[in-house]
Design a protein around this nucleic acid. Structure first.
Lengths: 248, 248
DNA sequence: TATTACTCCTTACGTTGTATAGTGTTCTTC
DNA sequence: GAAGAACACTATACAACGTAAGGAGTAATA
């Protein structure tokens, strides 16, 4: 490994994120690349979850040992950071045109779809200001829409925070719903019976929760998915109404 | 372990969540309890993060072996679920009175403070419909406020989702900010230099992001904390404005 | 009193991330 | 061209993890 003038791992991680890692000048030619490793790891995460991404598993996929990966990447944590930034590249595209409300809704939906394609994103620790280029590009895209719409600078962080939040929450519910539909109806019936046995007063203690659950279960054959969809667009509409009320 | 009539682990987890696990009728008296184990585990998580909560560490704290914990709790995952529900008990209190906007803001702030006290909540996987009593109580509290305010039933899931989202996002930023202020100013300067070396065109590529970051760094000696605070109340205000616009 | 159900402990297994050391390859320098 | 530095990769090893299996001791039941 090259020396990094004492700048530590933060510098190394930034270099990797921005594809600016210096290529080696001597020694045997590398048999793979950071990009290939990250792509492979993403593939594993997509199909087996983040816990499936072990150094050994990634190495095996590339016909290499786990330890050889440490030539490219300083450790598993950084690999996950790189994966996180890399998938955000899927959202890069032409700038949105049209009405800003529509643009924001589209932005939100695209981000949510990203989370659906890569559910493991929800397992990645959020306490991590990575500053990767693709993640940053996504944020910048939203800020541009807000700026173009004439939303006051002071309000933009709030809107941004709220939108990200709503998208992630919606993605969570969608992932949950998918996992749950795998379980089958029998599992649900059993669980409901168990809950009743353990908390017979559930409906009395939590009438509002039960009312909403019942309301949602009436809306079609995929109740959870539909409910998630509705509360997603509903929440965004609400937020944008608030923004608009503020602009006046 | 008692047999659970083939109902599996879901039943066992629900019993533990609701404190309805049957106490043993024979054998030596138990030297600890589920509650003590959960409390101990929460203490460890508070001070060392969720990764510090190992079966061995919890056992050590209670002068017991890791394996003895399996008498009380079927495994680490369920222990984490119990921890998650348990801390939500800290929010139980008298129902809020006064204007509903104020009540919702208070609810949100209390939840955010819970996340601040227990930052590891953000590390807990959200893809998990636990149905624990304390978590449910918190949700029910919010729904009651909404119902009392006359917010339409159809809108409540949206508002709920958005509020939870905003709170969690704000907590994330607060946790980040705390972790970052530990790092000291030198670390930040170094990191800024590294970013400039790696992405000299950062300010040109992401002008809106940079503008906001600059704006936020002007607002006092704890820029991150203040920014988080502002975007938190800002986002909620925005959302409630939207709700109000909808009620008309 | 014998049996049963239970708690707790010891031991052990497989898996993880990664430190260390060694082998062989390629570029640089003399 | 030869020597040596810089590198890629492998093999081995270690500590820590969750937890399965088995056994010793204890208390209620029959």
């Amino acid at each position: 490994m090259t020396e990094y003038a004492g700048q530590g791992e933060a510098m190394r991680t930034l270099e990797l994120l921005w594809g600016k890692a210096a290529s080696p000048k001597r020694g045997p030619s590398q048999k793979t690349s950071v990009g290939e490793i990250v792509t492979t790891a993403i593939g594993i995460a997509d199909s087996e979850g983040l816990s499936g991404v072990t150094m050994r598993a990634v190495g095996r996929e590339l016909n290499r040992t786990a330890m050889s990966l440490y030539t490219y990447v300083p450790g598993r944590d950084v690999l996950v950071t790189l994966m996180y930034d890399q998938v955000h590249a899927e959202l890069s595209g032409p700038p949105k045109t049209g009405h800003w409300r529509k643009a924001i809704l589209t932005w939100s939906e695209r981000l949510r779809e990203l989370y659906s394609r890569h559910p493991w994103l929800l397992e990645v620790s959020q306490a991590r200001p990575a500053l990767g280029p693709h993640e940053q590009e996504v944020l910048e895209g939203l800020l541009r829409i807000l700026a173009g719409a004439g939303v006051a600078t002071a309000v933009r962080p709030s809107v941004t925070s709220a939108l990200y939040s709503i998208v992630r929450e919606a993605a969570k519910r969608k992932v949950e719903a998918a996992a749950e539909s795998e379980q089958g109806a029998e599992w649900w019936a059993e669980r409901a019976k168990a809950l009743d046995a353990v908390a017979p007063d559930f409906a009395e203690r939590f009438p509002e929760s039960v009312a909403i659950a019942r309301r949602q279960s009436r809306s079609g054959d995929q109740p959870w998915l539909k409910a998630a969809e509705e509360s997603f667009t509903g929440a965004i509409t609400l937020l944008l109404d608030g923004v608009e009320a503020r602009s006046d």
